[in-house]
C-alpha cells in the first residue's frame, strides 16, 4: 500500500452554516427546463425533512431547452444567493446553461453570508467557480429531478439531508479491479468531466494540486472521454493530485468502430505512470445512487480490499 505524504497547510475553506429545522431552502433551474410537478414532489420530500421550500419561477418554466432566458435564470439565482432568509439552494436539474450565466452573477453577498449550494452535472461549473474564486464549500448531490417518491427514502437522497444538517459523511464502497491501493487526504474537487474541461483556462478552473479529484460523466462517446482525459493530463491537472476517485461513467456511446477500452480503462491509462491512490466505482454520478460529496471538504480516501471516502473531522 502506498501512503501519500500528510498534507500541509490546507487552505482555509469557507463552510457555510448548516441547516436547522424550519430553515428555508430555495429551488431554481439555472440550466435546462424541468417539470414543475417533479419539483413539487421533491419539495414535499424536503419539507418532510423539516425545512421550508421555496420554488422559483424558473421551475416548470421553459424557454427552448432552457428553463428561462439567461437574464431570468441569472436574476432568480442571484436573488436566492442574496436573500438572507434562504439558507441553501438545491437546483432543480442540470442539463446545460450554467456557463452562460456564471460570469453575470455577483457573489459579494454570498461571500459575506455563505449558504449551501447543492447539485451536480452542469452545476460542476458553479462548484468549481465557488471553490476557486471564493474558497467556498458546496454539495455535489442529487437535485430535485432525482428526489422522487421512489427515491425519497433512499440512503443516497438522505445523505443530502444529513450533509445539510452538518453530519460529516463516510462512505464505504467496493473495490474495483483497476484500483490502485493506498491512502490519501486532501480537499475534494472535481465533478462532471466534460464540464471540468470546459473550465480549462478560465477563472473557474480548479487548482487540483494536492487535492482529491472526483470525476463522473454521462452519455459521452468513449473517444471523447479519452480526449478529455488527455486534456486534463496535458493541462497538468493530474500530475500533482493526492488521489483520484471515479464515480459513474454511464450511458457511454460508441462510434461505428468500438473504441477498444472502457471508460475506466481509459482513465486508468492516463494515471498509470503516476502514483497516487485511485478508486473506481464511487456511487455518485448519473446513476441511481448519487451520494452527497462536500466539494472543498477535507477528505481521506482509503483504497484497499474495501474502499472508504470519509470527510475528516
Amino acid at each position: 500500500m502506498k501512503q501519500s505524504n500528510p498534507r500541509h497547510g490546507r487552505k482555509h475553506w469557507i463552510e457555510p452554516p448548516f441547516l436547522k429545522p424550519g430553515d428555508r431552502i430555495a429551488v431554481t433551474c439555472p440550466a435546462s427546463k424541468m417539470d414543475r410537478q417533479v419539483a413539487e414532489t421533491a419539495a414535499s420530500i424536503i419539507e418532510g425533512w423539516g425545512f421550508r421550500v421555496l420554488l422559483g419561477d424558473t421551475v416548470g418554466a421553459q424557454y427552448h431547452n432552457f428553463s428561462a432566458p439567461d437574464e431570468q435564470r441569472c436574476s432568480e439565482l442571484q436573488h436566492m444567493l442574496d436573500e438572507d432568509s434562504i439558507r441553501a439552494v438545491i437546483f432543480g436539474r442540470g442539463g446545460y446553461g450554467m456557463l452562460r450565466i456564471i460570469d453575470k452573477l455577483d457573489f459579494s453577498r454570498l461571500r459575506r453570508k455563505p449558504k449551501w449550494i447543492c447539485g451536480y452535472s452542469d452545476i460542476t461549473a458553479l462548484h468549481n467557480h465557488l471553490g476557486t474564486c471564493l474558497g467556498m464549500e458546496s454539495f455535489h448531490s442529487v437535485m430535485c429531478s432525482g428526489i422522487t417518491s421512489e427515491t425519497g427514502g433512499d440512503p443516497y437522497v438522505d445523505s443530502l439531508r444529513r450533509s445539510l444538517t452538518g453530519e460529516r459523511m463516510a462512505y464505504s464502497f467496493s473495490a474495483h479491479p483497476l484500483n490502485r491501493t493506498g491512502t490519501a487526504s486532501g480537499t475534494l474537487v472535481g465533478g462532471n468531466l466534460s464540464l471540468l474541461v470546459s473550465l480549462a483556462g478560465t477563472i473557474s478552473q480548479p487548482d487540483t494540486r494536492g487535492k482529491i479529484l472526483f470525476l463522473e460523466d454521462v452519455g459521452e462517446y468513449r473517444y471523447a472521454v479519452d480526449r478529455m482525459m488527455i486534456q486534463l493530463q496535458r493541462a497538468g491537472w493530474l500530475q500533482g493530485i493526492s488521489a483520484l476517485v471515479v464515480g459513474g461513467f454511464t450511458d457511454y456511446r460508441e462510434t461505428e468502430e468500438p473504441f477498444g477500452q472502457t471508460e475506466y480503462e481509459i482513465i486508468q491509462d492516463k494515471v498509470s505512470e503516476l502514483d497516487f491512490p485511485v478508486a473506481f466505482g464511487f456511487p455518485a454520478g448519473h446513476q441511481r445512487e448519487n451520494y452527497t460529496l462536500k466539494m472543498g471538504g477535507d477528505y481521506t480516501v482509503v483504497v484497499g480490499e474495501t474502499c472508504m471516502l470519509k470527510e475528516n473531522e
Partner: peptide
C-alpha cells in the same frame, strides 16, 4: 482548439 486549452499546444 477547445481540447488544447491549458496545454502547451494552446
Amino acid at each position: 482548439l477547445a481540447a488544447m486549452i491549458g496545454s502547451s499546444s494552446d
